[in-house]
């Protein structure tokens, strides 16, 4: 198996989860109700824990240790989709992003748990049970709020429209896409996307929300290879603020 292809995949998985975990953690103390405050914090802890598991696999393949990789790279070295780096905005945007992201992530984890590359298969099998709860949380809230007040429906619809160009770019193909598929690592991003559409459509159908015509949407590609919005670098600077006071110190 081409090691570069595996590393490329691992970076994408790890960076998505680190950055979304970081964003989720920003809800601590600010949630619309205490229970949501706590839920977003739980998901943040899971996501960052998952990113650590994938950075650890990278370290086993010869990359630097997880702290160095996570806390010292610049934005143009990150492989996350732009969706996860966008600011939290209001709760409706955070919830829609969580819904769109986790419904894709669970599919990726399901596929990877069957992967021909055993280290990834093991990690994905272990973690997918946690992602299942993230999906359950997102879908429950979308169903509840998406068929409640006019105000809530309008907010969610507008956030859905805003997030979709970024969400579709989660499926940006890897340079090694065909290789990964041929080697049985997983079925590839197109396959994830097809299944994702089915699942999010099924949830949205139970609400008063509408999925816009995706053919008219231009995905915001580029995140997988270092092209990011202006929001990522400040997030990384904040994350590394203490770490960089003395990168050799034990904190």
């Amino acid at each position: 198996m081409n090691e570069l292809a595996i590393k490329d995949l691992l970076y994408k998985l790890a960076d998505d989860q680190l950055i979304l975990g970081h964003r989720n953690s920003e809800w601590t103390g600010f949630g619309p109700i205490l229970e949501e405050d706590i839920a977003f914090s739980s998901m943040a802890q899971d996501k960052i824990g998952h990113s650590l598991a994938f950075y650890t696999l990278l370290q086993e393949l010869g990359e630097a240790d997880p702290d160095t990789v996570a806390f010292t790279r610049n934005a143009n070295q990150f492989h996350n989709s732009q969706l996860v780096e966008l600011p939290n905005g209001e709760y409706d945007f955070s919830l829609i992003r969580h819904f769109l992201y986790d419904n894709a992530e669970i599919i990726r984890f399901e596929m990877l748990s069957q992967s021909s590359y055993e280290p990834i298969a093991k990690v994905a099998t272990k973690l997918k049970g946690e992602v299942k709860y993230h999906v359950l949380h997102a879908n429950t809230w979308i169903k509840n709020l998406g068929s409640s007040t006019e105000e809530a429906i309008l907010r969610l619809q507008s956030s859905l429209n805003e997030a979709l160009p970024y969400a579709l770019a989660m499926f940006e193909n890897s340079k090694y896409e065909q290789e990964l598929i041929d080697a049985g690592v997983y079925a590839g991003e197109e396959a994830v996307k097809t299944e994702w559409l089915k699942r999010i459509q099924a949830v949205i159908d139970k609400t008063d929300l509408k999925l816009p015509d995706l053919a008219t949407i231009e995905p915001k590609f580029g995140g997988r290879y270092g092209e990011h919005t202006e929001h990522l670098q400040p997030l990384l600077d904040e994350m590394a603020e203490v770490f960089k006071i003395d990168p050799t110190a034990e904190w």
């Binding site: 600010f30 109700i33 709020l145």
Partner: peptide
């Protein structure tokens, strides 16, 4: 701010 920004969620629930 947290209370005000989250008020629509509580109204919806």
């Amino acid at each position: 701010t947290a209370e005000e920004r989250g008020a629509w969620v509580r109204r919806a629930l």
